[in-house]
Nucleic acid binder design. Sequence first.
DNA 1: CTGGGATGTTAGTCATCATTAACGTAATCG
DNA 2: CGATTACGTTAATGATGACTAACATCCCAG
Lengths: 198, 198
Amino acid sequence: MSTVSPSTRNRGNRRAEILEAAARLFAARGFHGVSIEDIGGAVGISGPALYRHFSGKDALLSEMLLDVSSRLRESAVAVATSSPGPAETLDALLNVQITFAIEQPALITVHDRELGNVPEPARRQIRRLQRLYVEEWVTVLAELHPACPPARLRAATHAVFGLLNSTPHSAGELPAQDMRPLLHAMARSAIEASVNDR
Amino acid sequence: MSTVSPSTRNRGNRRAEILEAAARLFAARGFHGVSIEDIGGAVGISGPALYRHFSGKDALLSEMLLDVSSRLRESAVAVATSSPGPAETLDALLNVQITFAIEQPALITVHDRELGNVPEPARRQIRRLQRLYVEEWVTVLAELHPACPPARLRAATHAVFGLLNSTPHSAGELPAQDMRPLLHAMARSAIEASVNDR
DNA sequence: CTGGGATGTTAGTCATCATTAACGTAATCG
DNA sequence: CGATTACGTTAATGATGACTAACATCCCAG
């Protein structure tokens, strides 16, 4: 048996562990509904120990949202540049968002609820990344439907995000393996409808 | 006896005014991110004066959510019993939810975020009303698509709510007059897709 | 060894906040 | 009139919570 003390086991991934626990708690009770004690307790340390890893509660949230929006945006860019055409890009974008929504429901929830609690230096950057992510979608949709006004495409994109991000609400209704194609089909169909009958 | 005195009328107005302001604030900053002072300030009275109208912050939230979920549920029942057939009922249900989402974005937002902050007596009742509302949708969908398993219909219903409730996020993108048919078309199309290709 | 960095701990500190107390004031009603 | 009622106000009060201080412990490099 290998000697595994708590400190040794946790050394590398403490920050990640904290971020994950905090995401779960923030998603469930909201940023202000969660105390530093709560977050510490969720990872087996207590309260002020968090300040060894983050400069404060705000910084924790900032880092969490910056990370999410960066990852989403990067995935979108990667997918857009490596796809043969707009139809395939849209398909891949749907998969990116669906994967994220199913695998990280807490992060997705926090991501679209708690921006208002991020203090100003980071807030602007997160907003920028979110906007770039949306524009990635709008660009692809505009290629597929050049006649549709961009404002409409933007509204449709937000509506699709709402649809896909509803996963946390209907958790347990359906196994993830059924949820994935369901969401894909619904979103694709909704997008097509957004462009027609106008 | 049954006469409505001016004081009674005023009291009602004040209460409604407070509920509306509180909904706006809760939607923007979250239940715990809003103080009693904030709510009072928003209606021109200050802090503790709220206790002349509500027994506490929790009670205020409880009443707000009970009211919303009752109204949604009642509208759904009214629509379902007065429609000639399931297709028309679905159409009317879509209109109910869209109207609500567009006209009361703050209430809709609070309604699907803050249930966790409602204390237990009221919580159960709100959950019950929400469930009944969902079942109203699922029943209609089941009539239209008897072959589709109810769990799938329920998941699709939640996804459609997510789509329709995204309005607060994309506020300003599109005038309400364009938003309404857009949401209707997207939702209807998403529902049809949820039932096919299975 | 040994001294320092990384990581915890427990006990303050200082704000903020929900709630209550104690106290006006104006209208209503008997 | 006189008192109750409705509705506000400004000061406590008591909790809670973010953050800091002071103090261990463990591991590892010099």
